[in-house]
Design a protein around this nucleic acid. Structure first.
Length: 928
RNA sequence: GGGCGAUUAGCUCAAUUGGCUAGAGCGCCUGCCUUACACGCAGGAGGUCACUGGUUCAAGUCCAGUAUCGCCCACCA
């Protein structure tokens, strides 16, 4: 099978037929909706996307086949910081310019231009993977439709009092020079020092010692705090210290927050005195509020020291640290410096250490929204798969702080807020939230602001035209959180919104359960009053063979496009589905491979399973179809026409269909792939097809029935496998529709044709499962296996045939009827089945259930090998029997275990005893 | 610091509510170009279910603890 020959053509065929386009038109009444987690426009497809989108496509295709009105909504995310950073970097490299050289308007124009060129690359890659998204509906988080949703949501939140402006300590990225939310940080271990610094008391009566990892922030200290329970507090609180280097007098205050030396979490390194820097530490900020301490901001936007730092002005924060420590050292004020390691927040974009920085920002008030979202999960309106991720979600929501949504960037949704310059409009209430953090100038400069749906011309309060829009843009996740709504047309009451919302399932990785999933639930509930999706399926993270995350920088990533080139899209997909269990990680051993052109890629043997399976499917299908000669003369069969093996494969098929359906509905993707694989390869190919060869060669009515069953089983298998491997199944389908149109098997097992498999019906469940027949087949397969084993062990050439005698007890009649099965598959030329057969001389033997198989070998028998075989079997049986006997002789077991279990153990003991007897007799016969 | 997950064959993973002799794919060994498929066919070897205790008639599965690896969260004394 060569995927390259079919994939592009088939995909185009689907597109041309409009198979992926969904409309709420009433013909298909049950909606099934998935919105894609919008990949970043800056991105290229990686293995995580490949997995994520394969799983979505499996569900969408399965539900489309089940007759649902299946919509898979595609699109991309503008990814504010990431995209702006990419274009800015390009600008610098190619034109040696910064965004400030170009100005806001031109920069944005450039980013749009860049997006036009590269923004859909990842979607094109998803198309190659076979994703059946409704591309006509492709959205972009920054397009007009999404912008309208963002504007509406912002205004609604603003009017509900859930958005406010405040001067707060936020996470400042000094490189990108923007605020970041808590979720855009990553914590990294940093090696630094712990400094104990002496602050002299103003009255000259000594000093106090503070401990810090950030000596440079002392420039902004406005107090020294100690615990009121500290015995020294009585004498010291209320006194003043002289801040070294700065020579500012600051008070010693009492605050419970401060740990006593040796007590509590921080006690180990506490001196009992805490330097308080309200403008640069969140805890100190709180202390500052409690004690009405002044805030001294010592940093510029780039985290260099500002004018408040006096002589240190202009120094970078880390340079300042060194200089200040040196200066303190020179003054003899460094009491100690100890090496120390701790976690420091870094920007996940720029990797720069975050600076807690005081600035005016917009916040979404989170308490009420968080409760809405948490209740949705607690009440089961949103369900997580696997369930445990619900806890992650709830934990996060329960500890949620207000969400800083403003970013000092240009690429994004501009905040829909305007300020009036008329001082008469100023409204202190609007600033109540940030009063404590404001300087005199800022208080003087505060202006009335308002939010509006349409760009306003005048101030609604005074009518002045002197209004300006806020400079900032919204956090990317603000628009992402509206994605299920905005893609369907909200706030307009579109037919799509009415029909497809709420969506059925969200498939994503666990990394963004909080960032994205929780916020979508909040926004869905706040804006539409309904959850955005009912189920959330969290899939595994793919790690390399050493258990490390794949990344560009580590060079251990596997590029799905390379895999498509090497193995085909179906192979990629099948392998990914196959490895999807419930665990949070899966490993994929990666190996390097040199391509013909000299390019080196990362690949993995894990994909061979998919390639091999597609190849198997392709060849078995070709073979099947090549044996459907005279199809036009065949007709649906009746139950009486079916042979034992026909009934068996139909039973297996029914089992595979019903179980696969259940597994897919339960998001058990791996189980589904394993089952469909085993059905096709092990049941259909290894047994039914092999058996069919003889029946087809024979001709007659049995041949025609076999052809019907073959065509039907193949038809159903293709449907079953299509969601996972759409290309190869569709390619085979084309040929099957041509070779064998109208594949109804019989009453109760129909297979209406379809021009394209993608829109064919999901296999219907039938009543053809028959456990008795499957049990009988186990016996037959066991006998064939036993004879094959003996042949193999005795070195009998595959083409040479052997005689066989079976002693079958009450199964003799059944086995006699199935003699053909045994002879054709085990290469037996002369088969005798007796209820109680004599052991032929010089025969190898095996026990299969209640039957015993003898293969007379005359001079061919290798006594040593046979002795070893039998001894091995005897050992196994004895071990088993010992276990069962131990159980049965345990009075407690017999008394307390489930009677059914006891019965089956007794039966097993009897079987094992019988088997052991026969095996020992065989060994004895060998010695004679 | 808090939470979660994993640990089963050389490798990657399975194993319903505890209950047949713990399975599959890859890899390995043997033999095969058998009326599709060598990306294949037939056969085989390979496991102290991380460790220690406990509950139970019965534990890979439940409980407690230990170890190792990994992930997420956490306001920097």
């Amino acid at each position: 099978y060569d995927p390259k020959e079919v994939e592009d053509r088939i995909y185009k065929k689907w597109l041309d037929a409009g198979d992926f386009h969904a409309v709420p038109d009433g013909a298909r009444k049950v909606p099934y909706t998935i919105v894609i987690p919008p990949p970043n426009v800056t991105g290229a497809l990686h293995l995580g996307h490949a997995l994520n989108n394969t799983l979505q496509d499996v569900l969408i295709r399965r539900h489309r086949m089940a007759g649902d009105n299946a919509l898979w909504m595609p699109g991309t995310d503008h990814a504010g910081i990431a995209t702006q950073a990419v274009v800015e970097r390009k600008l610098m490299q190619e034109e040696k310019k910064t965004r400030h050289d170009l100005g806001r308007e031109e920069t944005i124009r450039r980013i749009w231009e860049w997006r036009k060129l590269y923004g859909n690359r990842i979607l094109d890659q998803l198309k190659r993977m076979g994703c059946s998204c409704d591309w006509d509906r492709t959205r972009f988080t920054l397009d007009e439709q999404c912008a309208r949703a963002v504007r509406h949501a912002f205004v609604a939140l603003f009017n509900a009092g859930l958005i406010y402006r405040g001067k707060r300590l936020i996470n400042w990225d000094p490189v990108l020079q923007t605020a970041l939310s808590d979720d855009e940080l990553e914590h990294e271990t940093v090696k630094t020092s712990f400094w104990n610094i002496r602050y002299p008391l103003a009255d000259g009566s000594g000093h106090v010692t503070v401990a810090t990892t950030r000596p440079e922030t002392m420039l902004g200290d406005t107090a020294v705090a100690m615990n009121p329970k500290d015995p020294r507090a009585k004498a010291l609180v209320g006194k003043k210290v002289v801040l070294p280097l700065v020579n500012r007098e600051i008070p010693i205050i009492a605050d419970d927050y401060v740990s006593l030396p040796g007590e509590g979490d921080k006690g180990a390194f506490s001196t009992g005195f805490l330097k308080v820097t309200p403008a640069h530490d969140p805890n100190d900020f709180e202390i500052g509020l409690r004690h009405k301490l002044p805030l001294v901001n010592i940093f510029n936007r780039d985290a260099s020291i500002n004018a408040n730092g006096g002589t240190y002005r202009g120094l970078d924060r880390f340079k300042a640290r060194k200089v200040i420590v040196a200066d303190l050292e020179a003054l003899g004020l460094i009491e100690s410096e100890k090496p120390y390691e701790h976690e420091v927040a870094h920007s996940d974009r720029s990797k720069a250490p975050i600076e807690p920085w005081l600035s005016d920002q917009w916040f979404v008030k989170s308490d009420k929204l968080a409760k809405l979202a948490a209740d949705a999960v607690r009440e089961g309106k949103v369900r997580f798969f696997p369930e445990r991720y619900g806890d992650t979600y709830l934990d996060w929501l329960d500890n949620l702080r207000d969400w800083c949504v403003s970013r000092q960037l240009w690429w994004g949704h501009r905040i829909p807020v305007w300020y009036c310059s008329n001082p008469a409009c100023a409204d202190p209430a609007q600033y109540a939230a940030c009063e404590a953090g404001s300087s005199e100038e800022e208080r003087a400069a505060r202006r009335f602001f308002f939010s509006a749906l349409e760009d306003p011309k005048t101030c609604p309060k005074c009518g002045s035209t002197e209004i300006v829009q806020d400079e900032d843009v919204l956090d990317t996740w603000f628009s992402s959180s509206l994605w299920p709504l905005s893609t369907l047309g909200w706030p307009e009451k579109t037919p799509e919104l009415a029909f497809y919302y709420p969506t059925n399932v969200l498939i994503t990785s666990r990394g963004i359960i909080t960032l994205w999933v929780a916020r979508m639930v909040m926004m869905g509930l706040f804006n539409a009053g309904k959850v955005p999706f009912r189920d959330v399926y969290i899939h595994a993270t793919i790690l390399d063979g050493k258990g490390e995350t794949m990344s560009k920088s580590k060079g251990n990533g596997v590029d799905p496009v390379d895999i498509i080139e090497e193995y085909g899209a179906d192979a990629l997909r099948f392998s990914l589905v196959h490895m999807t269990g419930e665990t949070q990680d899966v490993r994929m051993p990666v190996e390097k491979k040199k391509l013909e052109g000299g390019r080196e890629i990362n690949t993995s043997k894990k994909f061979e399973i998919g390639r091999n399976f597609c190849n198997k499917l392709w060849n078995a299908s070709r073979f099947t179809m090549s044996n459907l000669d005279g199809w036009a003369d065949t007709k649906p069969v009746t139950e009486q026409d079916l042979d034992f093996d026909d009934r068996w494969i139909l039973s297996r098929l029914e089992w595979a269909v019903s179980q696969s359906t259940e597994e897919l509905d339960a998001y058990a993707f791996g189980a589904y792939a394993h089952r469909a694989y085993a059905f096709f390869w092990n049941d259909f190919c290894d047994w039914y097809l092999e058996r069919a060869k003889a029946k087809l060669a024979k001709g007659g009515a049995s041949k025609r029935t076999t052809q019907r069953v073959l065509a039907f089983a193949l038809d159903q298998a293709l449907r079953l496998l299509h969601p996972a491997i759409p290309y190869v199944t569709e390619a085979i389908w084309e040929k099957l529709e041509e070779t064998a149109p109208g594949r109804d098997l019989m009453k109760g097992a129909s297979a209406p044709g379809s021009p394209r498999l993608v829109v064919a019906a999901w296999p219907e469940e039938t009543e053809l499962r028959n456990e008795a027949i499957e049990a009988d087949m186990d016996l037959l397969q066991g006998i064939v296996g036993a004879i094959r084993e003996i042949r193999s062990e005795m070195g009998i050439a595959p083409k040479g045939s052997v005689k066989a005698v079976i002693s079958a007890g009450e199964r003799a009649e059944f086995l006699r009827r199935q003699a053909d099965f045994i002879t054709s598959l085990a290469g037996v030329s002369d088969l005798a089945v007796e209820a109680s057969a004599q052991r032929p001389a010089h025969s190898a033997s095996a026990v299969v259930g209640s039957a015993e198989v003898f293969v007379p070998l005359e001079g061919l028998i290798d006594f040593a090998t046979e002795r070893k075989r039998l001894t091995q079997r005897i050992e196994t049986a004895e071990k088993g029997l010992a276990g069962v006997t131990a159980k049965l002789s345990n009075a407690n077991f017999v008394a307390r275990a489930n009677p059914e279990v006891v019965e089956s153990e007794k039966a097993r003991a009897a079987d094992l005893t019988a088997e052991l007897g026969r095996l020992k007799a065989s060994l004895q016969a060998l010695e004679d």
